[in-house]
Write a protein that binds this DNA or RNA. Structure first.
Length: 428
DNA sequence: TCGAATGATTATCA
DNA sequence: TGATAATCATTCGA
């Protein structure tokens, strides 16, 4: 039905003094009478204009009659000429469009993520890249990789299925339209350029649908990626031993719980975690300890007692061996150098009201032994938080609530603090 | 199932 | 640049 208005329109344009038509009319069998010709054309126009008001059967019959009309070839040729000009002007208006940058971005992204392009290795490479970006060294990395790969593969499969569907539909529709146009070309002028234009319109429409598909796929990949990369989602608690090692270090350096980079590395190695995890742990520990000292008293006492016991046993051995006391490796952590019992001394000595005698190694050991008895006797019975805080007072925390300006006796007077001491946060 | 604990992230500051 | 404080997201135990 589209052909009728087009015919009418073209006709109207063409009739206004078109030389071709005049020639056709002269060549045709329209007779010699000008009025008769006009009447003839008027009739044709009338028939065309009223064709839509008629029933289908009537319209078909009229169409057939028009097709058989003696003026038809002449009109058809004129319309062809007009059409040619119209197509040319349309083509001039629709120059080659530059590739859509958004589409290019989407394509590149899908390629990079391994959704588009060669299947083999794409997802794995992306998973590996994502893992590398996450910087994770978790033991279950391979499991997560396979999870990521599986999900990416799902997305890829859906993407390709949909893409195929769209392409198939596009081809089918194009073929259908081309057939239709070819069929119509018998009754109205349709140039190859017009067909070409129609095909490009169809392709543009379908490519816009494809772009939506690509966009959705990209979003899905991004969500998957963010879930995979977001370390908070795959957080695992450190194992008990690691926590003990960290706590031991923390409480034995309570006046200055800022491990140096070396200490962090050593702690990380011992705990089988990364240095940044050690930093995170100390950051969290400091802030949480400071916020709620009372809550940590029990824990502090426990580690103080434990460290003291270990230190004492070491020093006792040292005495037996007639060697200088070095309360090294005091904690349950085993070989880690918990050399900074100075904090502990400070804390437990304060309990007895003794003043800390920096640098007096022998005195430290002795007072340690003395206070150890006290600590051990107290540890079991300290349920009262006030009493607990008296026992293990956070002397390192200054009035501003920070360690920053607190004196760090451990780093100065610790009996075992050597040049290679783990205390290096002197800026704090 | 809920709340506490905890590891990680982020904004801000010195 | 590292520390702090706030917050998020997950884990874990009751």
């Amino acid at each position: 039905m589209d052909e009728q208005p087009r015919l009418m329109h073209s006709h109207g344009v063409g009739m206004a003094g078109h030389p071709g038509l005049a020639q056709h009319m002269q060549d045709g069998t329209a007779g010699t009478d000008g009025d008769g010709r006009k009447q003839d054309i008027g009739d044709i126009l009338q028939q065309i204009m009223t064709i839509t008001d008629q029933s289908l059967d009537e319209a078909q019959a009229r169409k057939h009659a028009l097709n058989c009309h003696r003026m038809k070839p002449a009109l058809f040729n004129v319309l062809c000429e007009i059409k040619e000009k119209t197509v040319l002007s349309i083509r001039g208006a629709q120059e080659e469009e530059p590739p859509d940058p958004q589409l290019m971005r989407l394509d590149n992204m899908l390629l990079a993520e391994g959704v588009a392009g060669p299947e083999k290795g794409g997802g794995a490479a992306a998973a590996a890249a994502a893992a590398a970006a996450a910087g994770g060294i978790g033991a279950d990395n391979s499991t997560e990789h396979s999870d990521y790969r599986a999900k990416l593969s799902q997305i890829r499969q859906i993407y390709h299925t949909e893409l195929e569907k769209y392409e198939q539909a596009c081809n089918e529709f194009t073929t259908h339209v081309m057939n239709l146009l070819r069929e119509q070309s018998r009754t109205r002028p349709i140039s190859p350029k017009e067909i070409e234009r129609m095909v490009s319109i169809i392709h543009r429409k379908f490519s816009s649908i494809q772009m939506q598909l690509k966009q959705s796929t990209c979003e899905a990949v991004m969500i998957l990626r963010s879930r995979f990369l977001d370390a908070r989602r795959k957080r695992r608690n450190f194992n008990k031993q690691a926590t003990e090692i960290l706590n031991e270090y923390f409480y034995s350096h309570l006046s200055n719980p800022y491990p140096s980079e070396e200490a962090k590395e050593e702690l990380a190695k011992k705990c089988s975690i990364t240095v940044s995890q050690v930093s995170n742990w100390f950051g969290n520990k400091r802030i949480r300890y400071k916020k709620n000292i009372g809550k940590f008293q029990e824990e502090a006492n426990m580690y103080a007692a434990r460290t003291a016991v270990s230190a004492t046993s070491v020093s006792a051995q040292g005495s037996q061996a007639n060697s200088p006391s070095t309360p090294n490796s005091a904690g349950s952590a085993g070989s880690f150098n918990m050399s900074n019992s100075g904090d502990l001394f400070m804390s437990v000595q304060s309990l007895n009201g003794d003043s800390y005698q920096g640098g007096q190694v022998g005195a430290n050991i002795q007072s340690q032994v003395d206070t150890l008895r006290h600590v051990i006797s107290q540890t079991g019975g300290y349920s009262d938080s006030l009493a607990a805080s008296q026992m293990y007072s956070p002397q390192g925390i200054n009035t501003n609530g920070g360690w920053q300006d607190a004196p760090t006796p451990s780093s100065v007077t610790s009996p075992t603090e050597g040049p290679g001491s783990v205390h290096s946060d002197t800026s704090n």
